[in-house]
């Protein structure tokens, strides 16, 4: 019942639709869904700094905007720095009595390229300085806005336009960069992974992030039917499969303590997640096995971290 009430509150209250409909996202885009869900939790007292990317392009063709929140886009690589400036301004303007003292969420939003590649330096600076801000990485595992080029967050073996498989290439030749762990290394109060296929988990994590008196980092897997080459109605399902096979575990790190927030009894084989996706179509059984082994060992490591950091 409580869960249903939460759902009702977040999904049916029109005053919480802060990312308005009418945007230009692709059919089945789970990224804009993640955005919509996140801002339902964060609410109206929120300022958004957003990187260049899909979500920026689909939401703000001048003179139209689908943002019912104060929103700024400056460039690709500097979202965390812009958010730092916003937070600093709020702090000093409140101290000087120029604006009312109230809780304002400062949120930086960027894609996986804007976070794990070009925006990493600015993000590290912002996390290290300890601003009270929430940074959301919407990870669709490639540069989708520019036409599906690989990022450091693209999974091993995936075909993208700049990591094409061929006689001498498996596709993406490197393993996905572990952004959440990089965030954890900054000793910030809260780091979490989430996926819009698990809305309550996502709601809870943003609620926690909102209450932290310091930086939080939320890494959201955002299924991209266009780039992953899957049917658009399968976006939610693929988010579930990614979590259930252990390739994208849902966990949080609160003050250094790791905790799984969704732990399947048994992991489904990664093959079930991989097989229907066009970006993995070229992979051989051997290569899928290699991925399975990697997922197993990463899963084990993560569980160990949960054990050893348990207070």
């Amino acid at each position: 019942m409580k869960i249903l009430k939460t759902l009702e509150k977040y999904m049916e209250d029109p005053s919480l639709e802060l990312v308005a409909s009418g945007h230009r996202a692709c059919q089945g885009c789970a990224e804009v869904l993640a955005l919509r869900m996140a801002f339902k939790v964060l609410g109206k007292n929120t300022i958004v700094a957003m990187a260049t990317g899909c979500m920026e392009i689909i939401s703000t063709p001048l003179p139209i905007t689908c943002w019912r929140l104060p929103w700024i886009h400056v460039a690709f690589e500097n979202t965390a720095a812009v958010a730092s400036g916003i937070e600093s301004a709020i702090r000093i303007l409140m101290a000087k009595g120029k604006i009312d003292k109230k809780w304002i969420n400062v949120v930086g939003v960027a894609g996986d390229g804007g976070t794990s590649d070009i925006g990493l330096q600015a993000l590290s600076g912002a996390l290290e300085r300890g601003h009270r801000l929430i940074y959301i990485c919407l990870d669709n595992e490639a540069y989708m806005n520019t036409g599906v080029q690989r990022s450091s967050s693209t999974p091993y073996g995936a075909s993208t336009t700049t990591s094409p498989p061929g006689k001498k290439s498996i596709g993406q030749s490197t393993w996905k960069k572990d952004m959440p762990k990089i965030a954890v290394a900054h000793n910030i109060p809260y780091v979490a992974t989430a996926c819009p296929s698990y809305p309550f988990d996502l709601f809870n994590k943003l609620k926690k992030a909102k209450e932290k008196d310091g930086p939080s980092y939320i890494h959201i897997l955002s299924v991209c039917p266009t780039g992953w080459r899957i049917p658009s109605e399968m976006a939610i399902e693929y988010g579930r499969l990614a979590v259930r096979c252990g390739m994208f575990p849902l966990y949080e790190v609160e003050d250094g303590v790791y905790k799984m927030t969704f732990k399947p009894d048994t992991l489904i084989p990664v093959e079930e997640y991989i097989k229907g996706q066009g970006r993995f179509r070229h992979l051989t059984e051997k290569e899928i096995k290699e991925i399975q082994q990697r997922v197993n060992s990463e899963w084990e490591k993560l569980n160990k971290l949960c054990e050893i950091t348990k207070p």
Binding site: A49, V74, V82, S84, G85, I86, E87, S88, A89, L93
Partner: peptide, 12 residues
């Protein structure tokens, strides 16, 4: 400069 942009846009 990016932080100045964010701060100036917030009114500082």
């Amino acid at each position: 400069l990016s932080a100045c942009v964010g701060a100036a846009a917030t009114g500082a």
